[in-house]
Design a protein around this nucleic acid. Structure first.
Lengths: 224, 224
DNA sequence: CTTGTTATTAAATGAACGATTAATTAATAT
DNA sequence: ATATTAATTAATCGTTCATTTAATAACAAG
C-alpha cells in the first residue's frame, strides 16, 4: 500500500550530474521524510535503503552522500523529530510556573499534542531504541530522555509539595504509567484503531487529552 | 551479549542422522525458545534463521522441517505464548462472577501476572503485529484479541451497571488507557528499567499490580 | 573560459540471508 | 532381516542488501 500509492510520483530517473534549477537541496529533506515513514512501518532491519531512495526519487548513493550509512540516516531521522517534541515539552513546562494547571497535566497535554504531529516517533522508539542496545539509545538518552526527565521530576515534586499529587504512590511507577497511557495509543493505532474505534488525526489530541486528564484526576471509580 | 552468553552451550554439531535416545523431540522446543528471544530482541526482519538455529544447537534446515519457513516459525512462537496468556485471562474473569473485586481489577492483575511470565510477548506484538499489516495480525486477532475483548467488554458493562465504574468516561478510551498502562512497562524495560529503576522479574507483578490498581481506583489527586 | 566544488547517477562488489536438496542415521513397522 | 519413516547435517543456490567507485553535469569563483 505504501508502495503503490507513493510510487507513481517519480517514475523517471535522470542521467548523472547535478540537476538544474530549483530542485537543489530538496533531496535530503525528501530522504528524511521517506525514511521516517518506512522505519516506522517496517523497522530498521526491515527497511531497505533502495526502497527509501526510490520513495524519495533518488538513488541509494545519495543516502551515503548525505548521511554516511544506514545508521546515520536513522539517527538523523530520530534527532530531527525528537528535537521538535522536546521543544514542545519545554515550552509547556517552563510556562510561567505560577498558578496554572498541575505540571503533570500540562506535561500530558503537551506530550499528546506533540506526538500527534509526529506519530511515527513512538513506533521508531519502541522498535529501535527501547528494546535493543543500539548506538541510537545513547542518542535518545542524551538528546531527549535525560532532558525530559529533568523537566518532569521537579515539576512532580512541586505538585507533591503543593498537595496536588497523592503521596502514597511510588513516583517511579507513576511516571511509567503516565508515559504508557500517553504513548500506547500511538503504538497500537494500526491494529486497535479500527478495532476499538479511534484514529490519529489532527483532532486526536483534542479528544484524548481530556479523557486522560479526567482518568488521571479521579481514576475509574464512580463518585461516592 | 545474547550471543556470547548463550553461544558456548552447544559448541559441537553432530553428524547427520537421527540422534539417539532421549534428545528426540527436544529440538523443536529449543527452536521456539531461541526464536522467541531473538524475535523479541531484534524483530522479525532483524532475526536471522542461522542465528536462531545456532542458539538452539541445530542447523537452519530444522526450521524448515518443523515450521516450514521463517513466517511459520514466528507464527508458532506467537500462538504458543498467546494461548497461555489467554488461558490466564479466562481463568481470572470467569472466576465465580459473584462478589469478588471489580472485573477490570481482576483483568489488570491477571494480565500483568501473565505478561510477567512471558515478557517477550508485548515486544513481538508491537514490533510485528501492531504496526505492520502482516498475516500474523489475523492470527493475533482471531486467536487472542477478539476473545479477550469478548471477555472484557461484558465485564466492564457489569461493573458499570453495579456502579463500580464511572459513567462519564468513553469506554473505548478506557480500554486503550488501561491496556497501555499494563503493557508499556514491558516494552520499555530495557531502556527505562535502568533509568527509572525497575526490573521485570518474578516479583514485578507483585509490585506493579497494587500500584496500578491504586492509580486506577482514585487517580493521582490527593484525597480531599 | 577554466578550475573547483557540489549534487547526482550507473554500475560493481562482496557479504548475508532464506530456502532447497541430497545424504545420513536411528527408530519402527513388516 | 528388510523396508519405511522420522530427524538431522552439510552443501549450495539464487536473491537481496548496504556500500563503494567512477563518471557526469550544474554551478560558482577566478
Amino acid at each position: 500500500m505504501t508502495d503503490s500509492t507513493r510510487n507513481a510520483r517519480r517514475p523517471r530517473r535522470g542521467r548523472p550530474g547535478k540537476p538544474a534549477g530549483d530542485d537543489g537541496g530538496d533531496a535530503r529533506r525528501r530522504l528524511l521524510q521517506a525514511a521516517a515513514g518506512q522505519f516506522a512501518a517496517a523497522g530498521f532491519a526491515g527497511t531497505s535503503l533502495r526502497a527509501v531512495a526510490r520513495d524519495a526519487g533518488v538513488t541509494p548513493a545519495m543516502i551515503a552522500y548525505y548521511f554516511g550509512d544506514k545508521a546515520g540516516l536513522m539517527e538523523a531521522v530520530l534527532v530531527t523529530g525528537l528535537d521538535e517534541v522536546l521543544g514542545a515539552l519545554e515550552a509547556a513546562l517552563d510556562d510561567g510556573g505560577g498558578d496554572s494547571a498541575p505540571a503533570l497535566e500540562r506535561f500530558v497535554a503537551a506530550e499528546l499534542e506533540a506526538l500527534t504531529s509526529h506519530p511515527w516517533i513512538p513506533r521508531i522508539m519502541v522498535q529501535e531504541v527501547l528494546s535493543k542496545d543500539t548506538p541510537l539509545r545513547q542518542v535518545f538518552v542524551d538528546r531527549f530522555a535525560s532532558r525530559a526527565l529533568a523537566l518532569v521530576r521537579p515539576a512532580m515534586a512541586a505538585d507533591l509539595a503543593a498537595g496536588r499529587l497523592r503521596a502514597d504512590l511510588d513516583p517511579r511507577l507513576v511516571i511509567l504509567s503516565v508515559i504508557g497511557m500517553c504513548v500506547f495509543p500511538f503504538l497500537a493505532e494500526p491494529l486497535l484503531g479500527p478495532l476499538v474505534g479511534y484514529r490519529i488525526d489532527d483532532d486526536f489530541a483534542g479528544e484524548f487529552v481530556p479523557h486522560t486528564l479526567a482518568l488521571l484526576a479521579q481514576g475509574l471509580g464512580a463518585k461516592s
